[in-house]
Simulated scan of single mutants.
Amino acid sequence: MLLVGRPEIAERIVGTRLGGVLDMAAEREVLLGTLRVWLDNGCSAARAAELLYCHRNTVLNRIGRIAELTGCNAESGEVRLGWALALRALPLLAGDGEGAPGP
């Protein structure tokens, strides 16, 4: 991956696309985990809810919270691509303390 050798780019992508979420210590892990599962399953709230053992509306509320925190529209393909890239870049940041959030 191109970002492995360019940590400054990874840091910029993560900060730009997920900065607001990363600032929310209490919600960060659940929001990032939900976002990853939602994106990895074609942005299907129903499928993500099934995998996360929660209600579909819970997934939609979390995605809405992410959109609010990042100032982005979750309906935008460009935004979704940016979020996906940022999630993949997050573990590459040295000392980020978060690792790759799971479901």
Rank of each mutant, 00 (worst) to 15 (best):
M1P: 14
L2V: 13
V4L: 07
G5H: 07
P7V: 06
P7R: 07
P7C: 09
E8Q: 15
E8T: 09
A10C: 13
A10T: 05
A10D: 15
A10P: 11
R12D: 05
V14E: 01
G15M: 15
T16A: 13
R17I: 10
G20A: 09
G20W: 02
V21M: 01
V21C: 11
L22K: 01
L22W: 05
L22Q: 01
M24Q: 13
M24G: 15
A25F: 03
E27I: 01
R28A: 14
R28G: 14
R28P: 05
E29K: 12
E29H: 10
E29R: 10
T34W: 04
W38I: 00
W38H: 01
L39Y: 03
D40P: 01
N41F: 00
S44M: 01
A45Y: 00
A45W: 11
A45H: 10
R47W: 15
A48W: 02
A48G: 03
A49G: 02
L51V: 03
L51Q: 03
L52F: 01
Y53R: 09
Y53Q: 13
N57G: 15
V59H: 12
L60D: 14
N61S: 11
I63K: 01
I66T: 08
I66F: 05
A67Y: 13
E68F: 06
G71P: 06
G71Q: 13
G71R: 08
N73A: 07
N73G: 13
E75D: 09
E75L: 10
E75C: 06
E75K: 12
G77H: 05
V79R: 03
V79M: 05
R80T: 11
L81G: 04
L85A: 07
L85I: 04
R88M: 10
R88Q: 14
P91G: 10
P91L: 02
L93N: 08
D96G: 07
D96W: 04
E98L: 04
E98W: 14
G99F: 07
G99W: 11
G102Q: 14
